[in-house]
């Protein structure tokens, strides 16, 4: 036990030193949130978040390395130093701001329902219906506080919520507009469509960083401005969405 502790302490001080010299920026993302960040069959990360992160790194002239992390451990992993920034479509909320700092928003989002095309759906009549959400997202807290009569089922990833919607285990899925858009316009989501207007709007998505890491926040904000100005952002945007996702 003592040896193990010593070894752990030693590795800790080594990483401490290594971090001071190393310029590689470690970026945490989920890899289960298409088309923003997901894994291909060859194990590669792809998606809007991933490409934006790469563009930002190019802009900041730093080497970047991606770390995949499950959603529910994302903020603890950032705090524990497993990576330096979260680029995973994370909404800026007051609860999260108590734990981490955020960069300026890099896109704007709204919460929208999807449900099977042939199903009648009324966002205001959710009592007794089941709503699928991803655990630990703003959709989960929104659904739980606004649809008290509904059976809100929380899944570890967005993909599982959709799989159950398709199977008919749940009546609808509430999630970010962009991610739902990606799904219903793919062959996988052919069963379903948007239902009703967005139930919440203007939710801003930022890059989470450790509290007090103002230097990194400054660099990220500069880089976001730069890729907005030089057309890189628009290029990536066009590749994934036919509309402007930046908002504002």
């Amino acid at each position: 036990m003592r040896k193990l502790l010593l070894a752990l302490l030693a590795s800790a001080s080594l990483t401490g030193l290594a971090q001071a010299q190393d310029t590689t920026l470690k970026i945490g993302t989920e890899g289960a949130y298409p088309p923003f960040n997901n894994l291909t069959a060859s194990g590669q990360l792809e998606g809007f978040d991933v490409e934006i992160a790469r563009a930002l790194c190019d802009e900041m002239k730093t080497k970047c390395e991606f770390v995949t992390q499950d959603w529910d451990g994302m903020i603890p992993a950032l705090q524990a130093g497993k990576f330096d920034a979260i680029v995973a479509s994370m909404s800026i909320t007051p609860e999260r701001q108590q734990q981490v700092d955020f960069s300026d928003p890099y896109y704007v989002n709204s919460l929208t329902f999807v449900a099977p095309k042939d199903a009648a759906f009324d966002a205001k009549a959710q009592d007794g219906k089941s709503i699928g959400v991803q655990q630990g997202t703003i959709a989960a807290s929104f659904a739980e506080s606004n649809y008290k009569g509904a059976d809100v089922k929380a899944y570890p990833t967005q993909l599982e919520a959709w799989a159950d919607l398709e199977n008919g285990r749940i009546d609808s899925v509430l999630a970010d507009f962009g991610v739902q858009y990606g799904w219903i316009s793919s062959p996988d989501g052919a069963c379903c469509e948007f239902k009703g207007d967005p139930v919440s709007r203007d939710d801003k998505i930022g890059i989470a960083i450790r509290k007090g890491d103002t230097a990194l926040a400054g660099r990220l904000n500069e880089a976001i401005k730069a890729i907005r100005a030089n057309g890189k952002y628009a290029e990536i945007n066009k590749k994934y969405f036919p509309f402007d996702i930046f908002g504002q």
């Binding site: 302490l9 800790a12 001080s13 401490g16 971090q19 524990a80 130093g81 497993k82």
Partner: peptide, 25 residues
């Protein structure tokens, strides 16, 4: 272990080395 040991060790180690990062992968 995954969350707790990480947070705990981090706090202890940071008493000695303020900006150390502990990696309990």
């Amino acid at each position: 272990v995954y969350f707790g040991v990480q947070i705990g060790l981090q706090r202890i180690v940071r008493l000695v080395i303020p900006d150390a990062a502990i990696e309990v992968n």
